Simulated assay, not measured.
Amino acid sequence: MSEPDNFILKLLQEIRAEMKNGFDATGKRLDSIDAKIESLKQAMHGESVLGRYATAEFEDRIEAIEKRLDKLEKGH
């Protein structure tokens, strides 16, 4: 009976090793995905800030044009 016990133990050890390798590979892939998501978040945040600056500049220009138009309308 010693022989079948050793065989089963050997199979269980092989299964454990394969599972560990699979979990390690999955962990590395998840770490890579997390890094990519974080990078996308930072890029999106940067685009959002840039968009706010562009909008603010556009609003400032519109406001200046409206003031000039009011002066012209009041002058004539």
Rank of each mutant, 00 (worst) to 15 (best):
H76K: 08
I33R: 15
V49Q: 04
L12E: 12
E59T: 07
R61N: 08
E57D: 04
L30D: 03
A25Y: 00
L9M: 04
D70V: 05
D31I: 04
S39V: 11
E47T: 06
I8E: 05
A35Y: 15
D34V: 09
I33V: 11
E3C: 02
A64Y: 00
H76T: 10
E47Y: 14
I8P: 04
F7G: 08
K28Q: 10
S2C: 04
L69W: 00
N6D: 07
L40G: 09
F23S: 08
M19P: 01
F7M: 14
T26H: 09
I37P: 03
N6W: 14
I8Y: 10
A17F: 09
I8S: 01
G46P: 00
E38Y: 09
I62K: 05
M1H: 09
G27F: 12
I65N: 11
A43N: 11
E18Y: 14
R16D: 15
Y53P: 00
K36F: 10
I65W: 12
M1W: 05
K41R: 14
A35N: 04
A17S: 14
I8W: 07
G46Q: 00
L11K: 15
I37Y: 10
K41W: 11
L72H: 10
A64Q: 01
D34G: 14
E63L: 13
E47P: 02
E47H: 13
Y53N: 05
S32Q: 14
D70W: 08
E38P: 03
N6R: 11
L40H: 11
H45I: 06
K74N: 06
N6E: 15
G27I: 02
V49P: 01
E66P: 00
R29I: 05
L30H: 13
P4D: 00
E18Q: 12
